[in-house]
């Protein structure tokens, strides 16, 4: 009953949200929704203990693939988005062969290198990737009606509803995976891979599985973005964007499902409302860097740890501080 109430109120709030916002804020809202999927998919990857620097490029793979499928093959946009996601996931499986020979720091560097190679390929080949300028004039999502609501994708509000629906469905799938025995196995692979393997877990298979799922949803986020913006180019998926994703994840905290989402929302609001109003947009990378360092120093467990403190106090009136060892 209480959950149902929260669900209804939450849905109403999400549906009503854009009406209090200006046009440009509505556009930002669309990007925010897409970025929530991006950062949540990134967290799934980190469950197995590997941190990648190629995630944003993989998102770009989904964007490029979906754009090309519609442009070159005339595939219907929603279908091409799914195919874009599948392409990103399959590429991850291919990349896993060289990348999973490495672990930890080496994997981090390896994933960065792989991402740069992919971006180089986009830049180098005008056919079909459009070179440095990328691809423009990407088909928008075709308008449609669901009876009570007419989707008109020139309106950011319509795209917000459309993307919001897809993102929530994706988050639901990611949540189900994490709370399943598969998710437990990801954790096991992270915390003690030797013992997991001795229990019959195929480490390579599970690492690849996490990488492929995370990449698939990142690719879907990329496709959502490509058909909204109408253009893709190599620079929209560069390391600067990756640093934003890392900052969202680290500031929010990766121990819980909602941590990275919280980080993404809080920093986007901070960025768009505070920085834009103050005319400090240019300094965004600098300020993000500072925020990341400050949060590592003073809030090592992320914003989620603040939420946990509050909710724990509520549920347990007399919290006995357990000595953490």
């Amino acid at each position: 009953m209480r959950n149902l109430l929260i669900f209804v109120l939450g849905s109403v709030a999400l549906i009503a949200l854009p009406y209090g916002l200006s046009f440009s804020q509505q556009e930002i809202l669309v990007f925010l929704v897409i970025n929530v999927l991006l950062v949540t998919s990134y967290r799934l990857m980190t469950l197995t203990g590997e941190w990648s620097l190629g995630h944003v490029v993989i998102m770009g793979v989904g964007a490029y693939a979906s754009a090309l499928y519609t442009k070159e093959l005339g595939i219907y946009v929603p279908v091409s988005m799914i195919l874009g996601a599948v392409t990103a996931a399959l590429l991850a499986v291919l990349l896993s062969f060289p990348l999973f020979r490495m672990k930890g720091f080496y994997f981090l560097i390896g994933s960065f290198a792989a991402g740069e190679i992919i971006r180089l390929i986009w830049k180098r080949f005008r056919e079909p990737f459009g070179g440095v300028r990328g691809i423009s004039g990407i088909d928008p999502m075709p308008d449609f009606s669901i009876g009570i609501y007419q989707f008109d994708f020139f309106e950011p509000v319509s795209y917000y509803y459309f993307a919001g629906f897809i993102v929530i469905a994706s988050l639901w799938v990611l949540w189900r995976i994490e709370k399943s025995p598969v998710g437990l196995t990801f954790h096991a692979v992270h915390w003690q891979d030797k013992l997991a393997q001795a229990s019959g877990v195929n480490l390579r298979a599970y690492r690849t599985l996490a990488f492929a799922i995370a990449s698939g949803f990142a690719g879907l986020a990329g496709a959502l973005q490509a058909h909204y913006v109408g253009t893709v180019n190599p620079n929209s998926f560069d390391i600067e964007v990756m640093v934003f994703v890392l900052t969202w994840a680290i500031v929010g905290g990766t121990a819980t499902f909602y941590g990275p989402i919280l980080g993404c929302i809080v920093l986007t609001v901070l960025n768009e409302i505070v920085l834009r109003e103050m005319g400090l947009e240019q300094a965004r990378p600098l300020i993000y860097g500072a925020i990341m360092i400050l949060s590592i120093l003073f809030l090592p467990d992320g914003l989620e740890s603040l939420v946990q403190k509050v909710t724990r106090r509520k549920s347990a009136p007399k919290p006995e501080e357990k000595a953490a060892t």
Partner: peptide, 12 residues
Amino acid sequence: LVGTHMPFRPNI
């Protein structure tokens, strides 16, 4: 539960 991985193989 991780120990039961083999008899109850997870299916995603």
